[in-house]
Design a protein around this nucleic acid. Structure first.
Length: 560
RNA sequence: GCGUUCGUAGUUCAGCUGGAUAGAGCGUCAGACUUCGAAUCUGAAUGUCGGGGGUUCGAAUCCCUCCGAACGCACCA
């Protein structure tokens, strides 16, 4: 446990003890201690930590919060807690001021832990899977996928930092109706490009990239497949195009800094009989009924708005059926928790998917679905309706070319998945230099620059003494140290809430505090002791900035 | 029509799952480089937290209702 976590835990337990002692002394009356918080007050003049314990006790104790606070403070044991003073304020808050000396210990803690600073263990080695992007291989990756990739990958890194054993997975929709359509589209393009006047299929994929794929194919095999039997021809075209599309998706994501552990084929679920056996299982449990020739899942029993078809009247399973088998497979692989990141346009599927898991006897809460709102693209001051049909969309590749991987990933991770973000292409292009990511990266480069110069000055070796470190007592230094001490707590909260965007905020704040410090204090001063202390501070800040950027998948440049 | 999510400064967004005087970036205005990187810093102005009710010591946060937006409501995925 980190220094700061330790202190907070200690104070919390002392508060509990104080409440019990006050009760024994007959000064306070309560049955059960309600939950309370010990947190940093918004305004730092109020102190370092504050608790609302007296306020939440008011109801049970039938006394005013301020009276209760007096009793609590009277019985509070402060030795070993760094508490320097306690005071009652406002409606009944108890504010604590800590002896700032504890802060200097943070630097040593950071440098000792190195890349592991911020690592916590709330996961306790539990296996957790994050499935994200899982884009259809029938087209190119777009802005929505970019957001999903940034979110999913950073969440996975965050959870891993928090002590979970994480698997990143991509589900490839290489079966079913959509692939059938894909085959028809490919065939049509193939014939068209070879001069035949054939119609484009209804509901086909209009994307230009598909035409390019077929052109590439023709360059290799020519008109060889004109004479091949239709079924075989389509099969070949699909296999070829799928392979090319998936390779492209894979490479694009890799360039975006995302590496998957597992690429899972939908087709394998059909081949292995998993889809069929899963449906039989559901049938056996009585959750399936027949109507109008189709098989339906009673998903309404689990809160869905309507029952869903799993086997069509023509006998073929729906996408949903395969998806149920897929999620069953996930749990059977031993994941304690399974996380899906879906676009908000799929929110209607949440209830039925969880319902299907309940029906199969799994704990639905172990399947967690994070919905992210869609990305609204602005171009020339206007909202661009994105759709694959119209071909009106910006690809992930274009996004990286335009604004860069780091800026894109940071941008998405700065926002709550629940907010519809506006992405102004022109702004991203024109103002790329005042993108927040550069603020953080600049801080990192600056930190590196200071360290480089200290080396040139021959400032190696000798570590600062305890006394040297105690001289880091300006408000700028203390604010910075406090923020540094806070990282483990931030990781815990972010991992618990599955909100990596908190870390982007954190590192932005940290960079800001560093810039402020930099402008008010000089690091490379004549005074040996003070210089050594500040250099260690710089080393530690650099370490943390690097650690957090790594979680976010953003590079930490030494120069820029 | 029903459902899900959202509505916070001119603008883009935070707001730690109920706490003290609602915060940042950009933009605006005024300042800081003979000194470690000015892609930085310091200061100033800016709010009906969409409207209205309720719950309680206390609400941007929870509940109800209305307004507005996005997205769902296929034997598509």
């Amino acid at each position: 446990m980190s220094l700061y976590e330790n202190i907070k835990t200690k104070i919390t337990s002392q508060l509990l003890e104080a409440a019990n002692k006050a009760k024994l002394a007959g000064e306070l009356n309560f049955e059960e201690l309600p939950s309370f918080v010990l947190e940093e007050p918004r305004e730092r003049q109020r102190g370092d930590l504050a608790t609302n314990l007296a306020m939440v006790l008011a109801k049970q104790a039938k006394r005013s919060p301020r009276d209760i606070a007096v009793a609590l403070i009277k019985h509070l044991e402060t030795s070993g807690t760094w508490i320097e003073s306690s005071e009652i304020a406002g409606a009944g808050f108890i504010n604590f001021r800590l002896n700032p000396v504890w802060l200097t210990g943070v630097i040593g803690e950071v440098l000792k832990a190195g890349d592991d600073y911020g690592r916590v263990d709330i996961g306790k080695g539990q296996k957790i899977q994050v499935e994200f992007v899982s884009a259809n291989p029938t087209g190119l990756l777009h802005m929505g996928n970019a957001r999903g990739a940034a979110l999913g990958d950073s969440l996975a890194s965050l959870l891993s930092k928090a002590g979970y054993e994480v698997t990143r997975e991509f589900y490839i929709n290489d079966a079913g109706n959509q692939i059938h359509n894909f085959g028809l589209s490919l065939e049509s393009r193939y014939l068209q490009l070879l001069g035949q006047d054939v119609p484009f299929p209804e509901g086909g994929y209009h994307g230009e990239d598909l035409v390019d794929t077929v052109k590439g194919l023709i360059a290799k095999v020519g008109d060889k497949y004109l004479s091949v039997e239709q079924g075989l021809r389509r099969e070949f075209l699909v296999r070829y195009a799928l392979d090319e599309k998936m390779r492209n998706i894979r490479e694009t994501l890799e360039d975006f800094g995302v590496e998957y552990d597992v690429w899972f084929n939908e087709q394998s679920l059909h081949d292995s009989g998993a889809v069929r056996s899963t449906m039989e299982e559901l049938e056996k449990k009585g959750y399936i009924y027949e109507k109008e020739g189709a098989h339906w899942l009673r998903s309404t029993q689990f809160g869905d708005e309507k029952d869903e078809v799993v086997i069509r009247s023509n006998g073929s399973p729906t996408y949903f059926a395969a998806d149920i088998a897929y999620h069953r497979n996930k749990f059977d692989r031993g994941f304690n928790k399974v996380i899906n990141i879906w676009g908000a346009d799929h929110h209607g599927h949440v209830a039925r998917m969880k319902g299907a898991m309940s029906a199969l006897g799994y704990e639905a809460d172990n399947l967690q679905i994070i919905l992210m709102q869609l990305v609204r693209l602005i171009q020339n001051g206007e909202v661009v309706k994105m759709s694959k049909r119209s071909g009106q969309y910006i690809t992930l590749r274009e996004l990286m070319d335009e604004v860069g991987k780091d800026a894109a990933r940071f941008f998405f991770n700065l926002r709550d998945p629940d907010s519809t973000v506006e992405f102004d292409m022109d702004l991203a292009r024109a103002q790329s230099s005042d993108n927040p990511v550069y603020y953080v990266q600049y801080a990192h480069a600056r930190l590196c620059s200071i360290l480089r110069q200290s080396e040139e000055l021959g400032d190696l070796g000798t570590p600062p003494t305890e006394e040297d470190l105690l001289r880091l007592d300006s408000t700028e230094e203390r604010d910075l140290l406090k923020k540094m001490a806070d990282l483990p707590s931030e990781i815990i909260v972010a991992a618990r809430l599955m909100e990596p965007h908190r870390l982007a905020r954190y590192v932005l704040d940290l960079a800001g505090l560093f810039h402020t410090f930099y402008n008010s204090q000089r690091v490379l001063v004549e005074d040996d002791g003070l210089r050594r202390a500040r250099l260690n501070l710089v080393r530690a800040v650099k370490q943390i900035v690097g650690n957090v950027l790594a979680i976010l998948g953003v590079s930490a440049p030494e120069r820029m």
